[in-house]
Design a protein around this nucleic acid. Structure first.
Length: 336
DNA sequence: AACCGAAGCAACCGCCCACGA
DNA sequence: ATCGTGGGCGGTTGCTTCGGT
């Protein structure tokens, strides 16, 4: 299968931005004749352009059914959902969004949605919680910088620290709610590492991951960090405050993000189980209390964490000290 | 007002596949 | 079965706009 000869081999074929005159020639010709063969079209339409360039200009910009303007929230959610299923199949995704082109969706993904997911602690490729830990690994640097901060940059550091704290919690919660198959990091290894290297024993026959998934499914409604207005921060200034915000979170539901588990559940703060509550076994659809639940969660005490506390506070110190891999490059390597 | 870096987006590049001769 | 062509596709480039200093 030889590659088709590229038009740019033709001398004098114009490239670059289209002029209104060129647009008019193209639109008028296609209106009257249809596009027919794209290769022959430029000559017939009186355009000094490559046929391929004409096709792209028409399909991405001049087509009468193109919808312009901002993507709506519904479109955003649909794109994210479809991307979680189809990956970078932009044209397939575009067929589900009337009036949007694959190129437009691709650009919107790369410039907006990708960053949005990253800010929510979600890997935009796998649609699962980020496991690269690069973000969290930056926390010790923030701590070190805070030690030597001068008065003029302490506020900036504080903002960074707040963002880091928030994303740390997002990452932890999402890790807890993630099915085990896809993440490149072994969740149990992560739990062991955060638990001071002590493995978390899993009772035989206990579908711990499924239980975890069901229990924390509602927590995936975390609002994106970037979308949290300052006014709402006090409501999330404690871990329980965060829990109470999940029900009304403007983040993406687990269903939308392609997670399994209790999809569609509308877990409210009151329904949300405490992190260290006795887990339930999920055996064949009926939930029964587990007899052999681990004695303690690696994140025990997290619910008492106060997000308003400085990083130097005891509760944050305790948590960070448990996460030895944050300070140990070798551990980070193993986890990545 | 000028400069500069970041972000956004239209357009291009080149690989690939389907299909017809 | 092979080959050439048309066209679809994802990735990348580079120009324009925006916001901060």
């Amino acid at each position: 299968m030889g590659r088709s000869p590229c038009c740019d081999q033709d001398a004098g074929v114009k490239k670059g931005p289209w002029t209104p005159e060129e647009d008019k020639l193209l639109v008028d010709y296609i209106k009257d004749n249809g596009h027919g063969s794209w290769r022959r079209l430029p000559k017939l339409a009186g355009l000094n352009r490559c046929g391929k360039s004409c096709r792209l200009r028409w399909t991405n910009y001049l087509r009468p059914d193109i919808k312009r303007g901002r993507f709506t929230d519904e479109e955003e959610k649909l794109i994210i959902h479809l991307h979680s299923i189809l990956g970078n199949k932009w044209s397939s995704i575009a067929t589900k969004l009337p009036g949007r082109t694959d190129n437009e969706i691709k650009n919107y993904w790369n410039t907006h949605l990708r960053k949005k997911l990253l800010s929510m602690g979600i890997d935009p490729v796998t649609h699962r919680p980020r496991t690269d830990l690069n973000l969290l690994a930056g926390i010790p640097n923030l701590l070190a910088a805070a030690q030597t901060a001068t008065c003029w940059d302490i506020n900036a550091l504080r903002l960074q620290a707040d963002a880091a704290k928030y994303q740390l919690l997002q990452g932890l919660l999402r890790a807890l709610a993630t099915p085990p198959a896809a993440p490149s990091v072994d969740l149990m290894a992560l739990l062991a590492a955060t638990n001071g290297g002590v493995s978390v024993s899993q009772p035989a026959g206990v579908d711990q991951q499924g239980t975890r998934s069901a229990q924390y499914d509602g927590l995936l409604n975390l609002p994106a960090l970037t979308s949290v207005p300052a006014a709402t921060v006090p409501a999330m200034s404690s871990f329980s405050g965060l829990l109470s915000s999940f029900g009304a979170g403007d983040g993406l539901s687990s269903t939308e993000l392609g997670h399994s588990g209790a999809s569609g559940s509308n877990m409210t703060a009151a329904m949300a189980p405490p992190l260290v509550a006795a887990k339930e076994c999920n055996d064949g659809g009926t939930s029964t209390p587990c007899e052999d639940t681990p004695a303690s969660s690696p994140f025990e005490g997290l619910e008492n964490l106060n997000l308003d506390d400085e990083f130097s506070s005891d509760s944050w110190k305790d948590l960070l000290e448990q996460m030895s891999w944050l300070n140990n490059p070798n551990d980070q390597q193993q986890l990545m």
